[in-house]
């Protein structure tokens, strides 16, 4: 097989195969089961939003995708989750590498208590992504630019990241996450602590980031899901009730519970 054909073949595979795929995912906290038999595909370069009432398991699911649940002693995950057809719970997989490829932005902005520059530079530095100070400066600058924060902080990069406003802190966390060039970006209710203006900024940002990243976002806001995502999955009491293109879910839900939720009758 020639190289060209091989590349074409790979490109075709890549186009077909979802970026991430979960099959029969069950999660237990001790004896309590939190997720039941979740089958969900995360499409490449799309925004997938997970919606559902509080405690329905959407955050638990997103935390399975980069194995953040490993940090909880009593948490146990079964089933099959693949990133580019590779089982991420395989004992041979390196969790550090996985988390570098699947970045995460948390519900509450959690910048490191260090300078703005150090916040963004930390990931590239520990992964050895740059060879010189100039390269690192360039990466920090471009990450801050892509997170839409550069204009506001370019003259005070040495100030503590914790001194920024809530919305700025969250964009700093996004800059920090994208600085390590992840393939997938997980966002766990990134706007829940923000005012409407900061929320709008971040939503615009998500839309721009879609070109380069595969994004999974957990949100409580139906409008937000409708605005930013192409695919929506509705969780209820630990089960995946319905998934599909965002437009269809919101205009023509198949399941009664979905219908009730998006019209505000449950939750």
């Amino acid at each position: 097989m020639s190289v060209a054909v091989e590349m074409a073949q790979t490109a075709a595979d890549v186009a077909d195969v979802p970026k991430m795929r979960g099959r029969d995912v069950n999660v237990f906290y001790g004896d309590k089961q939190a997720l039941f038999d979740i089958d969900l595909d995360i499409e490449r370069n799309r925004v997938t939003s997970l919606i559902g009432p509080s405690g329905c398991g959407k955050s638990t699911f997103i935390r399975c995708l980069n194995r953040m649940n490993d940090t909880i002693d009593i948490c146990r995950v079964t089933g099959d989750i693949r990133l580019d057809e590779q089982d991420i719970y395989d004992p041979g997989i390196d969790v550090v590498e996985l988390r570098a490829r699947v970045g995460m932005v948390f519900q509450k902005p959690n910048p490191f208590p260090k300078s703005i520059y150090e916040n963004v530079a930390y990931g590239p530095r520990i992964h050895g992504m740059t060879r010189s100070k100039a390269e690192l400066d360039e990466l920090v600058t471009s990450s801050l630019r892509r997170a839409g924060l550069w204009d506001e902080v370019h003259d005070r990069l040495d100030q503590p990241g914790t001194g920024l406003s809530g919305g700025q802190q969250q964009r700093l966390c996004i800059a920090r996450a994208i600085a390590t060039s992840p393939e997938v970006l997980l966002m766990d209710e990134p706007c829940s602590a923000l005012d409407p203006i900061a929320t709008a900024t971040i939503e615009e940002l998500i839309d721009e980031l879609r070109e380069n990243f595969t994004i999974v976002i957990v949100t409580h806001s139906m409008q937000q899901a409708a605005r930013v995502s192409q695919k929506t999955a509705f969780f209820h009491l630990g089960r995946l009730i319905e998934e599909g293109p965002t437009e269809r879910i919101f205009t023509n839900p198949q399941n009664e519970k979905t219908q009730d939720y998006i019209t505000g009758r449950i939750g």
């Binding site: 980069n66 953040m68 550090v96 590498e97 988390r99 490191f112 208590p113 520990i126």
Partner: peptide, 17 residues
């Protein structure tokens, strides 16, 4: 706060880091 640990782990720092 555990959020600091999550932040570091979330960008691929090892536990010792």
């Amino acid at each position: 706060p555990p959020s600091i640990r999550e932040a570091a782990l979330g960008i691929g720092a090892s536990r010792l880091q």
